[in-house]
Design a protein around this nucleic acid. Sequence first.
DNA 1: ATGGTCGGCAACCGA
Length: 258
Amino acid sequence: MKAASFNVNSLRARVSLVIDWLKHERPDILCIQETKVQDAEFPADGFDKAGYYCAFRGQKSYNGVAIFSRKKLTKVSFGFDEAPADEARLIKARHGKITIVNTYVPQGYKTDSEKFEYKLNWFRRLSDYFEKNFKADEPVLWMGDLNVAPEAIDVYEPDMLWGHVCFNERVQGALEDVVGWGFVDVFRKHRKEAGHYTYWDYRLRGSVKKNLGWRIDHIMATRPLAEKSTASYIDKSPRLAERPSDHTPIIAEFDFDQ
DNA sequence: ATGGTCGGCAACCGA
């Protein structure tokens, strides 16, 4: 079983890239974020033909999440149970025995802003969400753009970047609290070295080439699943460079019967 | 030599 996460930074700008990537990579599950498309305009056509089911929830201009899968998705739901539901940031579905939760966590703007408090609270609400709806001994996959670099080895220049909304004590603590419910960072289980990134700032000239990036997209799995992971990697293949998003896909493979 | 982010969309935006 192969699962992937990719912040596409507008699905309509990259539909054919995503479809080609699915045809080439053939994951069982692909979670995408920042689709930036309302449901009525979701470009579902090519995905059917490529052999993928999809579930999605978007809004105008911002946010938006979707799941593509080779098996039919069941028990699809959107957002938190309580307001603000933030439906375009959280989508949950069942794929065989596995529960998938795909999130686009708020970025947070600045650490002294309301938006950052909202981000921290979002993680607290996510802890409640997992606590209330699932058990840590069930196979749950939590993946997406989590907008947190968990450790210093996950950013290109930790001393300079410390204090950023995606890299500071409070936000790392908030992520750790959710992970503490029962998740394993699947990528980190397989790759212990510094310098593996999933995001590069468009505004930094040559950031991809110089590998000035951040590891903020993650694949988290509960123990029954994480124990069976066999590999995890970040796809930096040139096929994606023709029309690059500012993020790149992260993939995990599991020896797990669905 | 120059001017150097991108996507969406009409916001001196959000990332």
